[in-house]
């Protein structure tokens, strides 16, 4: 099964870690835009939508000299199907959830129930990060920053606001996840764990390349 294959690939390639990242969120919150924004020099060409010629699903990032490959699962366009199965995060190494900042609160829910559910199953190596995208749209914002932070605290997950439009924090969000995953893999029993929230706070203002 998938878990095994992940492990297998993990052992085969010694230097590179492979993690799966899922983007979950309502339609139109900009999941795919985040991906498009999150560019990396080491594009992996794959057998992806070959006719379409787009591959922004696999990214290799460099974490302190180690190559970490993020396989990003994005089911944008399918949000209204009841098809996003929970099997995903049973198999996925990482579970990356996000919520929106703008538009109406009814249309864009926070994945609270999911958070609860993941915790029922999730292994310790699942990293959850709550993202508030479209942070650039200050006037239309519906989910306040404090609310996002509060929720994240409640569920003990990292939270950050991103903007696919300006590029704010996009790189940082993925990097933080890669870093966290890697540290979980390598951490020895009595070492202090990597603190995503702290890392994020440290690095927060550095992100952001405008187009």
């Amino acid at each position: 099964m998938s878990n095994i294959s992940v492990l297998k690939s993990f052992f085969q390639i010694n230097i590179t870690f492979i993690f799966q990242v899922m983007l979950i969120g309502d339609s139109g919150v900009g999941k795919t835009c985040l991906l498009v924004r999150f560019k990396d020099n080491a594009f992996l060409s794959g057998s992806f939508i070959s006719t379409v010629g787009i591959d922004f699903r696999n990214k290799v990032v460099n974490v302190d000299g180690t190559k970490v490959k993020l396989q990003i699962w994005d089911t944008a366009g399918q949000e209204r199907f009841r098809s996003i199965t929970r099997a995903y995060y049973r198999d996925a190494e990482d579970y990356h959830s996000k919520h929106t900042d703008t538009c109406s609160i009814i249309k864009h829910s926070l994945p609270l129930a999911w958070l609860a559910e993941i915790n029922e199953y999730a292994q310790d190596n699942v990293v959850i990060m709550l993202l508030g995208n479209k942070a650039d749209m200050n006037s239309d914002r519906i989910v306040r920053r404090e609310d996002g932070e509060r929720l994240a605290r409640e569920y003990n997950v990292a939270f950050m606001e991103t903007s696919a439009k300006t590029g704010m924090n996009v790189e940082l969000a993925f990097m933080a996840i890669a870093r966290d995953l890697k540290s979980r893999k390598l951490r020895k029993a009595n070492e202090p764990s990597f603190n995503v929230a702290e890392y994020v706070n440290q690095e927060k203002q550095r992100g952001g390349c405008c187009s």
Binding site: G25, E79, L110, A113, W114, L151
Partner: peptide, 10 residues
């Protein structure tokens, strides 16, 4: 504050 949000997004 999250009223209205306690439902499954899917």
């Amino acid at each position: 504050v999250f009223e209205g949000l306690f439902r499954y997004p899917s």
